[in-house]
Design a protein around this nucleic acid. Structure first.
Lengths: 203, 203
DNA sequence: GGTAGAAGAATGAACGTTCATTCCGCGCCT
DNA sequence: AGGCGCGGAATGAACGTTCATTCTTCTACC
């Protein structure tokens, strides 16, 4: 059913190559948790979509909560690395922002389910300490950028936390609307929204 | 427990004054659905927080789904009316935006739980047609404003849908961050964010 | 190279628990 | 005294999880 997704991101999950069952479970859980929510998804359903027995899941994950936390940590970490890696810090902040925005939109385009999953489970009560920690790391990276904008007097006078929440919120709003079929995210839309967001925070 | 909230919004729910049980159930459900999610909230727990018997809920609501839909419709409608009512259309759009932004922030401040509830259940699969319809009405109202901005050549060249998703996203991001304790929403913050968002969409 | 046997991975029926919902006896108001 | 609204124990379905069993894979020895 979701074999395309499987083959696409299989290599991404750390694994000792046990026949791909762990990956199949993770991909099935990602899909179902995203569409139906954590409490709305029954474990046997995950097993069915993954093409494994119900008991098999518990050979790889201690519990349903452990499963959702592994998913959350994996994708949050992956998102953070994908967006922030190798961004030159010796170019103007406006140009850095261009790179970041492009990568944000690309991530949502390349991994739409993962993006929706992360959004849906943001700050969920069943996330453990490790999930919260990586959540916090991402937030700090975002805020850090705007602090640098403030230091260089490029951003308007507002706390970095506020600028971060506005830009991140706009990003989420944009992707969510496109996911709901409001519009397609074309290169033109990416450029327009990037300029919008930059104008929202620049001095 | 949440008596303050009860006494505050009791009058808002349409009711034939049955002793306030319907309102108590609605308020308890609002609180619990918001904090634990729809599937994560057990009906007996709702009954306990509402201070009624478990069976009593079913005297007022046909099912758990009916309950969440009544809540969603009520608060979405209330939000829409609160934000859009009596806004003069003969003043500059920039001034209209000022009013809208103030009301949006006020709504989130006055009804933080309702705001979080609406955000959490946006586009949830268990929402019925009527809930979707009022969801759509709100969206159209928002988009309509930006269409007028485009007509008057005040907004930058981008589709109204895109401008709407960015501004609404920024609003949600701002409120969510303050809800997570990142900052307080002071009059200064409201003004800064309003200017931010206007600059994001203006020509 | 082929076969026997061990080891561990996978299974899905079964378990105890918890859920949404029902139902019936109690108590309050007239 | 009667009737209506209420509470909370009862109910059956569905949940997350377990475990006895089967299936697969790999090794060792002839």
């Amino acid at each position: 059913m979701s074999n395309v997704v499987h083959s696409k991101v299989t290599h991404l999950y750390e694994s000792g190559e046990t026949g791909g069952k762990r990956e199949a479970i993770l991909n099935a859980a990602l899909e179902l948790f995203t569409e139906r929510g954590f409490h709305g998804t029954a474990m046997p359903l995950v097993a069915e979509l993954a093409g494994v027995g119900a008991g098999t899941i518990y050979r790889y994950f201690a519990s349903k909560e452990a499963l959702v936390n592994v998913l959350y940590q994996y994708w949050n970490e992956f998102q953070l690395v994908t967006i922030t890696r190798d961004v030159p810090c010796d170019i103007p902040l406006r140009d850095q922002f261009h790179i970041y925005w492009q990568r944000l939109v690309d991530f949502a385009k390349d991994y739409p389910t993962a993006f929706a999953f992360l959004e849906l489970h943001y700050h969920a009560p069943y996330l453990d300490e490790k999930s919260r920690a990586i959540e916090e790391r991402g937030h700090n990276a975002l805020v850090g950028f705007f602090e640098e904008c403030l230091r260089q007097k490029i951003a308007r006078e507002a706390s970095a936390e506020i600028l971060a929440s506005i830009v991140w919120g706009a990003y989420v709003g944009l992707v969510r609307a496109s996911r709901n079929g409001r519009f397609e995210i074309t290169p033109e839309v990416i450029e327009q929204s990037e300029n919008s967001c930059w104008d929202a925070i620049r001095r």
